[in-house]
Amino acid sequence: MTGPQGAVAATFFDGQTAQRHAVRIAPTSDGLGLAVLFDDAARGALVWPFDRIRALDGQADRASLMLTLRAETGDEAPRDPARLIVTDAAAVDWFHRTRPALFHRDVRPGTFRKVAIWLSGAVAATLLMLFVILPGLANYLAAHIPVEQEVAFGRAVMAQVEYLFGDGEKGLTCTGAEGQAALDLLVARLTEGQAIPYALQVRVFDHAMPNAFAAPGGQIVVFRGLLDDAKSPEEVAGVLGHEIGHAVRRDPTRLALRAAGSAGILSVVLGDVSGGTLAGIAGEHLMRAAYTREAESAADDYALMLLADAGVSSEPLAAFFDRIATLTDAMPEYLSSHPLSAGRAERIRTGALYGADRHILDEAEWRALRGICG
């Protein structure tokens, strides 16, 4: 096989049986094909056209070649089942030097179109799962999950939030007894007589962020930064009323299930709410919660109702939104999941109960609350 003359030993498999056939191979006299000569003369000879001979993929070793024929078969890589194994070094070298078509990749006509169709289908299925099926399933579960299971899920989320965002040993929760008593008193006065499906658990995180968020099952967190920035306990009451509104509507459960995805939904369905990774993902999303504008407006309305029923003016809450408007209103409203703070302040003033003058905490209780983190 060092030229157009001569024959060398090789091994042939017909692809129908496991039998090995000792053969000799040589180029045909016209140079267009490879003759495969069997020791059994009765079997005759095969001729493989060079333009159809292919080396099987994954042959980095040049000490041997496994050859097959391109053929119109039913799979996507058209190959004849027969195999020819060449181990003669000179013949292997000759094939590499003189037959570049040996390593062509053959694909059936229409394969790329099929791949494009399947890829488009996979993308469409993924988008359907992410933006239709998972949100719909999360909404359904949030409305139908038993309260006890939702509370357990919320506790798992809060435990992971403290573990992931705290300093390991101390955690995030502020533990000042007088401050916690003042916070509990504020919540009790704000929610007195209200039909709330949870025993609310409100705590303060020792973090400078001026924010608050609600977790599933009536778990609510106020950040120390919010207490530092608030001008009155009524402002804190308004923000807490807003987060209680989210809790009552089960917005945090809906958001947490969406954030955790199908695995998180399955965990809740099966009652396994202790998965640290899933709870951590859900907690991180809740700390930077992005509810829809409709959900935010509904939570504002709930806060106004709580303040009105408690006899507390909602003007301090409007003033709070006035102050943060300069920080949050740079983004156009149609690009934001939250209504603009200035617009929220105006909307709250429209429904403000100006005649109410009840202070939800006295000065001593307010000082205790602001000092809850020490």
Rank of each mutant, 00 (worst) to 15 (best):
L340A: 12
G238V: 00
S337H: 12
L32V: 00
E333A: 13
T11A: 07
A138F: 02
M305A: 13
A290L: 11
S267A: 15
E296D: 13
L327N: 12
V23S: 04
G31R: 01
F103Y: 12
E76A: 10
I220D: 08
F205G: 06
W366V: 03
L369Q: 09
I324G: 10
A7N: 11
A45M: 10
G3I: 00
V221Q: 12
F165T: 12
N139I: 07
V147S: 08
A42T: 06
G193R: 06
L46T: 04
P332V: 04
H285Y: 07
A18R: 14
G280D: 09
F13H: 12
S341C: 09
V222Y: 11
G283H: 04
L32C: 02
S313E: 10
A90V: 14
A195R: 13
A71K: 09
T350R: 15
R323W: 05
E169L: 15
G374I: 07
G15Y: 11
R254D: 09
F38N: 08
D329W: 09
M331S: 02
Q201P: 02
V312K: 04
D357I: 02
S120I: 01
G179Y: 02
L67T: 00
G371S: 06
G225R: 07
A247F: 08
V132E: 08
A260M: 15
I196A: 02
K170R: 13
A18V: 09
A256L: 09
A325L: 08
H207P: 02
V123E: 05
Y140D: 14
E243V: 08
D251A: 14
H338S: 04
A318I: 03
D272M: 09
T68N: 11
L327K: 13
I133N: 11
R370I: 07
I133R: 06
A101I: 01
A199G: 13
R70L: 06
Q59A: 04
R155I: 08
S314T: 00
R43M: 12
L172A: 02
L200W: 07
I265G: 07
R293T: 00
D14G: 08
L172T: 02
P332M: 07
V47N: 09
T28H: 05
D301H: 00
F321Q: 01
D75H: 13
A182T: 01
L286R: 01
V187A: 15
A10M: 13
A345C: 06
L340Y: 01
G245N: 05
L226S: 07
A282G: 14
R224G: 05
I244P: 05
V221R: 12
G343E: 14
G121H: 07
S120P: 01
E294N: 13
A90L: 10
T173C: 06
I85L: 15
A215R: 09
A18T: 13
T175Y: 04
P100H: 03
G176I: 01
A89F: 00
S341M: 09
